[in-house]
């Protein structure tokens, strides 16, 4: 869509029927504002970092942001789908852990790497499908169902093993240690490519397919979407399948990153994913948001951690406090923004 073509309603002015009047054309439609705010924040944080710390403003630091958070990007993409329909998926962190466990245990049992990867992805999608079906057909709140999913996945981890399982498979190790050199000497990992492909595919699905538009429609008004004859059931269940798939994929990326399967991997990662989505400008009430925003949200979270590692003397708990504070700022901003519109 061409941004320049979209007129926005003059702020504060009353809406006018049969709008002939002042059709002011502002360059940026309001719905992109949150994402732009996130982008500005990211750039500003990076600018501050570059001024404060030597070596901060290098391509590799940016690349590392992607490398260290590839799994979180994938996770946030899946979460964006769910939140766009007005739902929530608390199970993602546990599904990541379960995926690392299944991968590690599978490989240990002698499965081939492709089979393992397929099995993990199928498991994640199936898990999401199950939750989606329960949410949609039994009309139980997503919060509760995915909370049960959180417990279930974590519990299954322990059933597989209480101990950490190392991954020794060659394919996994080669993906894990593989690097792709970019012009300028910056290196990234295959995981980064996968994560960016996921973002691109997600953006395509959300904006250029009927399924994607139905996701937005359901988030805007589910009953309207149903009365319009849209496939709401497919969208509502589908987003959990996507989120489950993304969690499994993120779990694979995470196992490349850690080269182990462990029940205590990714504890609380669902909160990071939700925080990234919210900071990226997606409304938790559904219907409004962009997947690019979630990507930016993850990068902002990653920058905070980079800050803390560059600072050196700061303790790790400042990360949590900083994320909480950012979350607060964005939520309050969203609130004021939406509040003014309403």
């Amino acid at each position: 869509m061409k941004a320049a073509q979209l007129p926005t309603r003059p702020e504060g002015a009353a809406p006018v029927a049969t709008s002939r009047p002042a059709r002011r054309r502002t360059p940026v439609p309001t719905r992109f504002l949150p994402v732009i705010a996130t982008f500005v924040l990211f750039v500003a944080m990076f600018g501050v970092g570059s001024v404060r710390y030597e070596g901060f403003a290098s391509g590799q630091v940016v690349a590392n942001l992607f490398i260290d958070n590839a799994f979180l990007i994938v996770l946030a993409v899946g979460m964006t789908f769910v939140i766009l329909t007005g739902g929530i998926d608390l199970s993602v962190g546990s599904v990541v852990a379960l995926s690392t466990m299944v991968a590690a245990a599978g490989l240990q049992a002698g499965w081939s790497a492709p089979l393992t990867i397929l099995a993990v992805l199928a498991m994640g999608s199936g898990f999401g499908l199950l939750m989606g079906l329960v949410i949609h057909y039994f009309e139980i709140q997503p919060f509760i169902v995915t909370l049960a999913g959180l417990f279930l996945a974590r519990g299954l981890c322990y059933v597989i093993s209480v101990e950490s399982i190392p991954i020794k498979d060659d394919t996994f190790r080669s993906i894990a240690t593989g690097v792709i050199e970019l012009p300028g000497g910056t290196v990234i990992t295959p995981s980064v490519v996968i994560a960016l492909v996921v973002v691109a595919v997600a953006a395509y699905v959300l904006h250029l397919t009927r399924f994607g538009r139905t996701v937005y429609a359901v988030g805007g008004s589910e009953s309207s979407a149903r009365l319009m004859g849209l496939a709401t059931a497919r969208a509502k269940v589908g987003v959990y399948v996507i989120s489950g798939f993304c969690s499994a994929l993120a779990g694979l990326l995470f196992s490349f990153y850690m080269l182990s399967g462990y029940s205590l991997h990714a504890v609380g990662m669902e909160l990071d994913a939700i925080a990234a989505v919210v900071i990226g400008g997606t409304l938790l009430s559904g219907g409004v948001g962009l997947v690019v925003g979630s990507l930016l949200g993850v990068l902002v979270l990653g920058t905070i951690q980079t800050f803390i590692s560059f600072e050196g003397t700061l303790s790790s708990w400042w990360t949590k406090i900083a994320i909480g504070t950012l979350l607060l700022i964005f939520i309050v901003m969203q609130r004021l923004f939406v509040g003014r519109k309403a």
Partner: peptide, 20 residues
């Protein structure tokens, strides 16, 4: 603010505060 997000702030930051 929606309660689930409003309290998410303290859920995230709170444990950091306790560690502080």
């Amino acid at each position: 603010i929606q309660p689930i997000i409003a309290t998410l702030v303290l859920m995230t930051a709170g444990r950091g505060i306790a560690m502080l």
